[in-house]
């Protein structure tokens, strides 16, 4: 089964108070040198059948109408490369 990943991020001009809160917490935890944090959402979609252009077009349509609110968010769609098999050591 093929996996398609949709990443949704707030547009750059939209304030991300959650990302800012994370960024402000980092120095307190000893993680220095991070100048900005933006927080987003990642959707992992397991697709039935081949992930061809038509399937990707459907996923884009899904992202556009439902997974992202394009008034405030941008999204990217990509097919996940075959990674390590389940159960393999990281």
């Amino acid at each position: 089964m093929a996996r398609v990943v949709v990443d949704v991020m707030l547009k750059p001009e939209i304030l991300d108070p959650q990302g800012q809160a994370v960024q402000r917490a980092l120095p307190r935890l000893g993680f220095e040198g991070i100048t900005d944090v933006r927080q987003g959402k990642r959707f992992e979609l397991d697709v039935e059948g081949p992930v061809d252009d038509a399937a990707l077009a459907r996923v884009r349509e899904m992202a556009e109408t439902f997974l992202a609110n394009t008034v405030i968010e941008d999204f990217t769609v990509r097919v996940e490369a075959a990674g390590p098999q389940e159960g393999a050591p990281a």
Binding site: L15, P17, V71, I72
Partner: peptide, 17 residues
């Protein structure tokens, strides 16, 4: 209503969280 596009714009997390 904003998600339905009956009204423009969107509502986001309060700036002070």
């Amino acid at each position: 209503l904003c998600e339905s596009h009956l009204l423009p714009g969107a509502l986001t997390r309060n700036d002070h969280l």
